[in-house]
Design a protein around this nucleic acid. Structure first.
Lengths: 337, 337
DNA sequence: CTGAAAGCGCTAACAG
DNA sequence: CTGTTAGCGCTTTCAG
């Protein structure tokens, strides 16, 4: 069992050449309706399916996209990956997953694996792409897209949400809510998302003549975020609001505030996050946050990547999509004037 | 840019035949140390890397495993997938992701894609594998593993946790906690996990001469679980404990209980779940549950699959791994006697 | 141990 | 539009 049906066998049965069969299965080829019918019939009867690998080999296009990920812990990524994979699938591409151990560096071996598989393109989500990766991919002519991150490298295309503006919106909102001691639990400083969100936030505060009351770093990890929250709350004077750099850490912070410090949210302290992952809406958290437009981000990422694959000359581009402030119950509301 | 370095080029530079190069890069081939050194040196200088696709083509082994998934909404799956991907990667295999839209059926097109890519094996997580898939894969000689599900089909290998025993443990625990009106929020009946957990739970109750006080179905989805909870709680007489079929739904149920019915957990009602996903430990939920040994499940799944790939004759096998009851604060504790 | 030669299954010019 | 002819880059007998 498991006898492979080749295009050659189909050709013989249909009484045409092997290349005719190939053409019938390649969208956009010129074949007469008559030949196509014969071929399709024979293929059907034999249960023929074109071999993607052979096709990749011969054409130099694998229709495989390498997706480099890490940090599934943060719900945002599973959600995003699901959408990326679906969008890619709708375009007849598929995702080869590469787990990267380290947030700061895509190890040499992952890059090698990626290249060895002759992927047509790469999407890097949540990994700092090292120069090495960039250079090797450029040399190999493989386009790279950064998802939810950008780097100073001009040759890299990136899709993010507009983190600066989002941060600013959050600051506006807290200030209008009458908060006076606004603190920040930051993520990893190496990430552009962190830097942009914080910069936007600070600029929002500055616009009202305010500055950060306190700052503590959670590095985007739950346990570190909890520790960061403890530091903030053990202080002589406590903040009356905290902007946590992503929802994932915000949940951690909220847990600490309620279970360890017995404070109420938002009566005693307001919390806002960033991402709007599914859980943020759950009554237990009911988190005010900025939504990342994951669907559109995935669509744009795929669109740009495919364009780069099809059109060698297309220039790298960086896109920042706007996301709305989602007001829920975790932060005191502005008093309408 | 992007000039491909082939084994032939390496061969020329090293002054050996192309097949010599091939042998050097194939683990376990017989090459003299001298040749190997020359080849490795030339390869290094040229920056040569073997082309996985060409290798797949020639050898008939792609080292690609198709992973069919859906339902990322439930944290259990991202966690499991991460582990599966890592384990596979450690064995020099990689994961091609296939998103399946429908929980009940792996659509025709997914199967085709899978087969077209010449995957060496398939892991189906969270999809009811239709007979079609099974048959086609068998015909193609591709081994299939079910992850966290089993089917009546004897030809399919499956790795699950011991859901029956787990369900039983939960029943024991609730009974010993003195609960008298024990209800169940069920998942999708088409899933073996649901049937096994419930059967074990019922048998546990029966052992103490008890039966289910009420039952309502949430189909493993958050919104349906919430509705199921409402039905249970709007009844004349409310349950004093609920076994929810997985943690994902348990969170939904807890949210409804607290925010809509203003009841306290566990003072007014006890909740237990199943899976022990990361969130279950969060103070906000602090859920008593049965742990699925995800790491071991992933390891076993990979081990068996690779064995089937390497050894055509290895028989299908079904494994159910034991998982511990994890006691936290969401259910009243048994009074020690 | 090593080289030569024959493919793996398909695509892509190239004539016709 | 169609068949012929080369490969894609590697593995794998098979002699030597």
């Amino acid at each position: 069992m498991g006898e492979k049906i080749t295009s050659y066998m189909v050709a013989k049965r249909a009484g045409v050449s092997q290349s005719a069969v190939s053409r019938v299965f390649k969208p956009g080829s010129s074949v007469s309706e008559k030949t196509a019918r014969k071929v399709r019939k024979a293929a059907e009867e034999l249960g023929y399916r074109p071999n993607t690998l052979a096709r990749a080999m011969a054409s130099g296009r694998s229709r495989i996209i390498g997706l480099v990920v890490a940090y599934f812990e943060n719900q945002f990524y599973p959600e995003a990956i699901e959408k990326l994979a679906n969008t890619l699938q709708a375009n007849d591409y598929h995702v080869l997953m590469f787990m990267s151990w380290d947030e700061t560096e895509a190890p040499e071996t992952v890059i090698n694996d990626l290249l060895d598989y002759q992927v047509d393109g790469i999407i890097a989500a949540s990994v700092g792409v090292t120069d090495v990766l960039t250079k090797r991919c450029e040399a190999a002519g493989i386009p790279v897209m950064l998802f939810n991150r950008h780097q100073n490298d001009d040759k890299l295309s990136a899709v993010t949400s507009d983190n600066f503006t989002g941060g600013r919106k959050l600051a506006e909102f807290l200030v209008r809510g009458g908060h006076e001691r606004i603190a920040h639990v930051a993520g990893w400083d190496g990430a552009s998302t962190q830097r942009d969100r914080e910069a936007g936030f600070l600029s929002g505060l500055a616009a009202h003549g305010m500055t950060l009351f306190a700052r503590s770093c959670g590095n985007f990890h739950r346990d570190q975020a909890q520790e960061a929250a403890r530091v903030l709350l053990r202080a002589e004077v406590r903040p009356d609001a905290i902007f946590v750099s992503n929802d994932h850490m915000a949940f951690a912070v909220m847990d600490v505030i309620r279970s360890e410090f017995k404070l109420r949210i938002p009566e005693d302290i307001s919390i806002v996050g960033y991402d709007d992952v599914a859980m943020s809406e759950w009554p237990c958290f009911d988190l005010t946050t900025v939504r990342q437009p994951t669907n559109r981000m995935a669509e744009e990422t795929v669109r740009i990547l495919l364009q780069m694959i099809e059109n060698e000359e297309s220039l790298p581009c960086r896109i920042a999509l706007d996301g709305p402030l989602v007001v829920r119950g975790s932060a005191r509301l502005p008093v309408d004037e």
